[in-house]
């Protein structure tokens, strides 16, 4: 496997992007999960689909789009979707969750229109939907790297504010933290991670890499920082195992990565059940 990675550029791109996503998706995912925004990640991934499909369609008819990486329009759609979600959440103050199905269905709706308008990009589209080991270009890797720098800088600069906001948003506002702006930037960064991750994991499975490793880590961690570290470890292990198995068995990496992360979750759940049972037995 190592020889293959050293030999083939597409594998270097896939593993490079995978390793980066294995860090940033669960890292941001911790904040998404504790802030109960998991479904927003799903909504944004479907908006990204509309952007990608739109770009692929336009590349057939508009010369300027023929050479443009579809990831750019995917990123633009995702960021635009995150802004729209926030606007809708403000508009429907008492029904904030309504923003999610509205944006999610809008994403699928536009995506379906672009897919049916264009014909002949089913292979490309399959890669975007479920991830691909072979389709990650050097440009994709550079985009993912740039997104990672933005995410890491954002988390490093606003970690303490994000923690307070996630734990208790009313307290964050009352204590004078710029909660509104930090939340807005958080949504933009989330949109970037979703758009960046979908080359490897696929649009339909990207939110799972942000949530399943976190769900696993939360069962065994004792502190917030430990939750972050364990989420990244579970995420990273899922990406590596998923990519290796996808390469050897010629499977979509999105599927293998997510199934691996679910296996980790099951192992941890069983371990916790046994540990709690043993503890109760010892007390009795």
């Amino acid at each position: 496997m190592i020889d293959a990675i050293l030999t083939y550029e597409f594998l270097q791109n896939a593993f490079g992007a995978g390793l980066i996503i294995g860090v940033i998706a669960p890292l941001l995912g911790v904040f998404i999960v504790v802030r109960r925004l998991s479904l927003i990640a799903d909504a944004l991934s479907h908006v990204t689909l509309a952007g990608i499909a739109g770009s692929l369609y336009l590349s057939q008819s508009v010369a300027a789009f023929a050479t443009l990486n579809p990831l750019f329009l995917g990123i633009a759609a995702s960021v635009g979707g995150s802004v729209l979600i926030e606007r809708l959440r403000t508009l429907y103050k008492h029904y904030e969750e309504l923003a999610i199905p509205i944006i999610l269905s809008a994403g699928i709706g536009f995506g379906a229109i672009f897919i049916s308008l264009a014909e002949g990009f089913s292979n490309d589209l399959f890669g975007y939907l479920f991830g691909s080991v072979s389709a990650v270009s050097r440009e994709d890797l550079l985009i993912v790297g740039a997104i990672a720098l933005v995410v890491l800088a954002f988390i490093a600069l606003f970690f303490k504010e994000l923690f307070v906001l996630s734990f208790d948003d009313e307290y964050a506002k009352a204590s004078g933290l710029p909660a509104k702006w930090i939340h807005f930037m958080f949504m933009i960064v989330t949109a970037l991670v979703i758009a960046g991750s979908m080359r490897i994991v696929g649009i339909l499975l990207v939110s799972s890499l942000m949530t399943i490793p976190v769900a696993t880590a939360m069962r065994v961690s004792k502190s917030f920082k430990q939750t972050i570290v364990l989420s990244i470890l579970f995420g990273q292990a899922s990406v590596i195992a998923g990519l290796v198995s996808a390469f050897y068995f010629d499977l979509a990496p999105g599927g293998t990565i997510v199934v691996t992360s679910i296996l980790f979750l099951l192992i941890v759940l069983i371990y916790k059940k046994i540990a709690v049972g043993m503890k109760r037995g010892a007390i009795a």
Binding site: V34, R36, K160, E161, F163, V164, S166, F167, D168, D169, E170, Y171, A172, S175, G176, L177, M218, S221, K222, S223, F224, K225, Q226, T227
Partner: peptide, 23 residues
């Protein structure tokens, strides 16, 4: 009203959050 009851944080982390604005 506002506290997320299942939040994975220690008492020390929660209290340290009170220093965010001052810092």
């Amino acid at each position: 009203n506002s506290f997320n009851a299942g939040f994975p944080a220690t008492v020390e982390e929660v209290v340290a959050g009170g220093l965010a604005k001052k810092a």
